[in-house]
Nucleic acid binder design. Sequence first.
DNA 1: TCTAGTTGTCTAGAACAATAGACAAATCTG
DNA 2: CAGATTTGTCTATTGTTCTAGACAACTAGA
Lengths: 246, 246
Amino acid sequence: MSEAGIERRSGVALWRQIADQIRQGVGAGLSDESGRLPTELALAERFGVNRHTVRTAIQALVQEGVLRAEQGRGTFIERQPRLSYPIGPRTRFSEGLGGQARELRGNLLDHAYEEAPEAVAEALEIAPGAPVLRLDTMAEADGRPISRARSYFDAQRFRGFERHFARTGSITMAYRHFGVSDYLRRSTTISARHADSADLEILKLSPGAIVLVALGLNVDQAGRPLQFSETRFSADRVELQVGNTT
Amino acid sequence: MSEAGIERRSGVALWRQIADQIRQGVGAGLSDESGRLPTELALAERFGVNRHTVRTAIQALVQEGVLRAEQGRGTFIERQPRLSYPIGPRTRFSEGLGGQARELRGNLLDHAYEEAPEAVAEALEIAPGAPVLRLDTMAEADGRPISRARSYFDAQRFRGFERHFARTGSITMAYRHFGVSDYLRRSTTISARHADSADLEILKLSPGAIVLVALGLNVDQAGRPLQFSETRFSADRVELQVGNTT
DNA sequence: TCTAGTTGTCTAGAACAATAGACAAATCTG
DNA sequence: CAGATTTGTCTATTGTTCTAGACAACTAGA
């Protein structure tokens, strides 16, 4: 389904196009079993560019942690398969990735009490401008940044939520302190875009990287909105799974 | 959550980054009610670049049909909001976009009877190497390419499927000829990546564009696998909707 | 009609990307 | 060890992108 097509004068540097293709090819059969990439010269011929251009692409991928170059030996793939993140009525971060990573951690980056922007107020079914708690978080699996999120809560109902989250690192746990023993994911809207500069910094991505953007609304058992959030996943590290697996 | 962040020396030309941001901003509140973009000079200051760089970006978007520039008046948005594509147990292309576009069409690009690749065989629960029908299709809404898909069917059960699809332009209709009156989407796996050259050509995208990739498995009422497919959506034109809207 | 504000066009130079060639340094094989 | 293969570093040149400034062409409002 893919092809080694390189466009000149397209506004995207050749080395970046090649880097993107190699990054993709790492999943498919670009390398042999040993995880060894073709030589720089072979890649240069294949893409129809100079060896130095290929080198620039490889250096960028080494920087990203996708490849590892060894002088005299060759260039090798640093295997790190995508985590599969399930999305459904019972979407929960910590349980979702269970078993796929050894260490999962949610970190609180920032929080503030603010007036609800229009879209937030509508989703939470409160008045525009009503006070909301904004929570900026990020999550790591085995030390690799996986996602960052901005969540909004009704401030009247959840004042002090951030302290409970910071202590436990879990949204589910923090809810308990407010009498919410269970909740459901009512809807999720998924799109994708290029990472912005904050994404690059927080998720440790390189320019041009892609993020999956999931807008989600959680509701309590009575169907009342609890939390409206935008989560950004590094598209290189995560895929989203809708429905059961099998 | 987004920011006017422009990365220099990133391998992506400034004009292209700016074009991407403007294309995105067209959905959000980059323009006032009248659909008029800020002036070239204002945009140049906002992004911290020269006016000519902004002009290059705008020209690319005019070419794409996203903007329209009028000398002496300003630059205006050619409104085309993202289509929202619902994903759930009853995912069907034609119904999913109902109401959001006037004209929907599915086109058959190519088909062939082949031996099942490993991943396909596993998904369809048939023997590796067993004969399968591969169907390459693309879909347009109001003349704009929306998605392309590669689907696999068990050749023993669905021989001749491609003729019924080509005639009706509908998977659902084609199933009827094989006694399948209803089917369910068992699972969908969503990821995102840069468009490859075939994507660029078929979906009429510009280099560096993003595609949402959905791997889906349809099953019949008895739970037997019917169809395994990979669909690629232009991320600029489509978002995926999981769960109900309200 | 005049003026202010906007997009369109041109020229020239600076910064960056890509090519080309040569050779060093490390690794593996025989 | 000798030779072949591969990645690493350096220099020089060419082509593309970005900046800078000036002015033309068009529009809208006073």
